[in-house]
Structures are given as C-alpha cells and as structure tokens.
Design a protein around this nucleic acid. Structure first.
Lengths: 234, 234
DNA sequence: CTATTAATTTAGATCCATCAAAAGCAGGTA
DNA sequence: TACCTGCTTTTGATGGATCTAAATTAATAG
C-alpha cells in the first residue's frame, strides 16, 4: 500500500533517528534523500496525517510506533536483500546498496521469508548492520561511533559500517577495516583525523567523514587508561 | 529510463503481437493491463511519440524495432526472475508470475546477468517460455495453440503454457499437463471442450479457456489420419 | 446509402511526487 | 528591543498515469 517514496522517507527518518535521535529536521531528511526542503515538508505532512509520524512545525518529526514498524519492514527487506546479493550472487559489499534500494520496495513478504530461510536466518547484512527478524523485534543493537566509543589507546571490534557512501566503504575495505576487525585508536587529531591500528599492525588515517561511519563495540580490556564512560541511548 | 508503466505496456503489446499479430488494438491492451481504453489511448500516443510504437489511429499499434528491443528486455528479465524464483527459492510454477511482474522493472542489468549465470543460462522459464539471451536474439520459438496444432488423433509435446492466469495454470498442473508432456487430442467438441489424453493414459476435458493456453509442437508422426496443415505465422 | 452499434479518441479532472520562488518563523546579536 | 540569518513552510506550477463522460469514427445491417 505505501508508495516507494513513502517507504524511502520512513527509512531515512528511521536512520537519522537512530543516529542522532528525534526530532528529525526537514533539512536532514532533504539531505538524506536529495530532495528539496519544500518537497520534504509536504511529504512529512501527509505522513503525519497517516499516523506514521508525529510532527511539530518548524521543529521536526519523529516516527510513531506505526511508523517505526513500517520503517523496520523496509530496513529488514533492504538488509536481507543485501545479504542475499552478497552471498548468492557474489556481489561485493560495496555494490549491494543501490540494487537493494531499488528492490526493497517490490519484494513480497513471501519472497522475504524465503530469502531469509535460504540464507539460514542471517543476523547481519554485509556491512554488519543487524537484520530485524520477521516479528520486527530487537529494533537494533548497532555499536557506537568509533570516536565516541574508543579513547586513544583503546581497542574495539568493528560492529558495522554505515552503507550510505560507496566510496567510503571501498576506502575502509581497502584498509582492511570491515565488520569483525579489531581496531585500536592511536590518535584523534583536533582537525578530525583519526589514526587507527588494525590487528595486523598497520596504521591508517581516517578522515572524519570516514571515521564517522565506523561503529564499534569496545573490547572489555584492562591495561589501557580509558574511563568507563560509554555513549548511551534510549 | 522507461517507467514501470511504459514497460508494462510494451510487454503487453509484445505478447499480443506474438499471439495474434499486429495491429494491436486499444481494447486488447486495455484488457491485458486492466486499464480503461482512454488511458491506453493516451499512453500509446506517448509511446509512439517516443518511437517505440507505430500507430494508426482507430486501427492499432505495432512495436517498432526499438520498441521490440525494449519489450524483449522486459520479457527477458521477467522470465529469468521466474526461473530464479522456482529454482532457487522453491516457488511453485503457479506462484512465480506476480512476484516477477513486480521485480522485473527494478533489477539491474548486472543483477540479470548474475542470475542468469547462477542458473547456468537457462533456456526457458518454469512455464516453458523461452528466455531471450543477453543479446536479445532469437525472438521466440514458442509452439502453437493446442487446437490449431493438433487435429483429433494427433499427438504433440507441450511446449509451454501461458502464464497469465494462476487458476488455469493450477488446473493444468493438477492434470499433469506441463511443458514436456506428450498429449494426444481425443476430441474437440463444438462447444469448445477439448479432450486430451496424457502419456499416462488419463483423459482430461479442457474448457476452451484452458485449452487456449496450452501451446504444443506436433509430434512428427505417421499412423494418424491428420492432414499436413500447420498454423503458420510470419 | 443510411442508421445503428461498437470501438476509439478527446476533453476535462484527479492524485502523487516533485520543484522554484516567495513568505514566515525562531533564535541569536547588537 | 529590534534586527538579521537560516530554516521551514506556503504558494503555485509541472509531469506522469489514470479515470469518467462526451464526442467521433469505422464497420455493419438494413
């Protein structure tokens, strides 16, 4: 019933909410979907009339429970398709995103379930993002942004990589930084450059735009001098 | 670049042309796509402006070479997806059509090629319809409508079954009439009922609407009393 | 040759998603 | 307080696909 556009908006809002939290502004959505702010305003208006968003003018929107369910369905289809493309059709992780974006709106529930079974109920897509199960429970688990989670000297495991920008992805894959990799933050420069050491001892300088897309779980460690502070969210 | 609707029209016109030949009338298209005649008129107008159809008002349309290429691309994707659904995801042949109709507009050329390779370059979809190869050569081969091809007493091999109506398909599958099956026409009643005998000796009465969807190739035989007349088309 | 009929086309309208340009609001600064 | 400045919203318009109702054309039966 929802159109492709509606699903795209819900998915984008979901993403932004789970990174930056509500309220989600018109310009954030416009940026994510490459639409003009005017277009976004009119769309969020209809979405909130349909009960998928709660909206406060000039402030922003937030998914309602119904909206979140709808968004999770799209996210589930998207990630399952990505996993399918990588595992069955030998796509590179950097190539799956666009194809999944196109297909996610047109696969049936039946198809989704069959793919899920074929892949034996995978937990995550090729970027490490968790795949919501059919009942749409366990909204997420995620991991925390690299710089927020790890102080210099601390180590962690890469949980996932944001899949928005193919170039960033490729950069990281080339650097050997993929889900499951252990990384140690060596230094965070004032101008945003994050230097990390991978398990094989190589050091890589990650520009801010790249580092922001790496999500990690802290290694439960002992020796380092980090404080116990972790980013938390409701 | 072509929209979903454009592809649907081209595919429908292609189908009708390859069964009944041009010109294809407004009402034939309207019937096939479940649209009003007025809608079809305006669409074929834009399609012929784009050089995909040649059109004569009040008479009908015919695919141009460019239109036929575009139509074959859609048909290729459709049938490949059907084959994929049946072979990889264990769909029943009766279930693949609708899913393929939705997906066919949104898979990339890359995806299509990868699926084709995964299935090892299949020649036909689950209904027996030939899959055009990537170069879009060999337009078709098909087979001939049951009653046109076989006089009572003659035998032939089922080449394919039209995949438009799931109920009809199911009926035929239940009767054991699927691509590859040998059938003998026992009788054609004046009111349209066609009685056939399958290889295992069972006889089935096929209503006209069902028989029209079975396409066969005549067995090169000797004993029977049939005349040498075959349906021919350019 | 005319009148009826069936199909086709035209005319006019709607809905959805989108945009550009203009107007409005809100928060910070002097 | 009064004023910028940067978002956001409003306004008005467009293109694509569709429909209903009315007008037109082609084919056929007298």
């Amino acid at each position: 019933m929802p159109t492709d556009a509606v699903e795209d908006y819900l998915k984008a809002i979901y993403r932004i909410e789970s990174r930056a939290g509500p309220p989600v502004s018109t310009s954030q959505i416009a940026g994510a979907l490459d639409k003009t702010p005017a277009t976004v305003t009119s769309m969020v208006e209809t979405l909130s009339e349909r009960g998928l968003l709660s909206r406060e003018k000039y402030t922003g929107v937030e998914l309602t429970p119904a909206g979140e369910v709808a968004a999770l369905e799209v996210v589930r289809r998207h990630r399952l398709i990505e996993a399918f493309l990588a595992e069955q059709l030998d796509y590179e992780p950097t190539e799956v995103h666009d194809e999944a974006d196109a297909l996610e709106h047109h696969v049936s529930e039946e198809f989704t379930r069959r793919v899920e079974r074929l892949l034996d109920y995978p937990a995550a897509d090729p970027h490490g993002d968790p795949i919501p199960p059919a009942d749409l429970s366990t909204p997420e688990d995620a991991g925390t942004a690299l710089v927020a989670a790890l102080a210099p000297g601390e180590r962690g495991t890469v949980a996932r990589i944001s899949d928005r920008d193919p170039d960033v992805l490729e950069f990281l894959v080339d650097a050997g930084i993929t889900p499951g990799t252990t990384v140690e933050v060596v230094d965070v420069a004032s101008f945003g450059l994050v230097t990390v050491r991978t398990s094989d001892g190589d050091e890589h300088g990650l520009p801010e735009a790249v580092a922001d897309r790496v999500y990690v779980r802290r290694a439960a460690e002992s020796s380092a001098a980090g404080d116990g502070q972790e980013a938390s969210d409701a």
